[in-house]
Design a protein around this nucleic acid. Structure first.
Lengths: 155, 155
DNA sequence: CTAAAAGATGACTCTTTTGTCAAGTATTAC
DNA sequence: GTAATACTTGACAAAAGAGTCATCTTTTAG
């Protein structure tokens, strides 16, 4: 159970954009400098998010990347789906069939229930966490998140 | 955010042991046949769990692996910690420092709060899910887990 | 028109994770 | 004691993930 590098760095880049002027956006170069990662990598990550319609690019001398929606309309779930993959229940089974052609636990799969319940809860939580929840003083952010995690199945 | 192959297959192997006769355990070969994965791989996964004191091996002609504790005293958290790693908050920061020597978000790190809240909730949930919760008809298992996930921060 | 700034793309390398293999050692049946 | 069974170990090969690079194209300032 791990957070991938793409998810981590991609989210950081996106938060830089969320904190930038929404009109002018921010260039790859500047994000790279601010986050201490290479411009080439920032470019790659932003492109993934652009493909997922979270942001868009503007070419030319005053170009850069900008958010497609307001920070309170972009969820952590959107970001994670664009960058990595929180597998759905079916995907978990499909990806790990063992040496047989299909999952051995076709019917009566108790493992599926465990991962499904877990990933559903995670997904639900991430759907509630918005980009706007993640900017600001850490203490404030933390409190907001604690509240959102309290009832993972409510949405 | 993904479930690693080791976690998935390791848990499956462990569930086979949980369903076996607790006195005689089960051999690597038999688990391999039942799960449709190679004996060499089963061996490797069981070894990791043996190192984590979840199971132990018995050599010789009637050998195999056995649980060290009853299924209701082994949690999903124990398994995941033995096989993969649900990173702690500090580890997340340490692993992704960018090109600088330490994390750029040392103070006032809002991303840290997001991952920390998430991983804490996951860890809490996994701590409550016991091996014994995972054996039995899928419908029953599912219901038990739904109940456990409801209040991730209660423990 | 030209040059500079900035994004676009695909191939490529490096690292980590997965999974296999071969050559062990321990235990027990006979 | 010998053979069969089964766990042990470390090295290795294959695949996936992470990150870089060279070479584009687009836009705009002057």
């Amino acid at each position: 159970m791990k957070i991938t590098a793409q998810e981590e760095y991609g989210l950081r880049c996106l938060l830089q954009l969320a904190q930038a002027d929404q009109e002018t956006g921010m260039s790859v170069k500047e994000i790279a400098i601010r986050e201490g990662i290479s411009p080439a990598y920032v470019e790659k990550l932003l492109r993934l998010m652009a493909k997922a319609d979270i942001i868009h690019s503007v070419r030319g001398i005053h170009g850069g990347y900008r958010l497609n929606r307001k920070p309170n309309a972009i969820s952590l779930r959107d970001v994670v789906r664009a960058l990595g993959n929180l597998p759905t229940t079916e995907e978990i089974c499909d990806r790990h069939p063992g040496n047989r052609t299909s999952c051995i636990h076709i019917d009566e799969c108790c493992i599926r229930s465990a991962w499904a319940t877990l990933t559903h809860a995670i997904d639900s939580f991430m759907g509630k966490v918005l980009l706007s929840d993640l900017v600001g003083p850490e203490a404030t952010v933390k409190q907001a998140l604690q509240h959102k995690v309290a009832t993972p199945f409510s949405v």
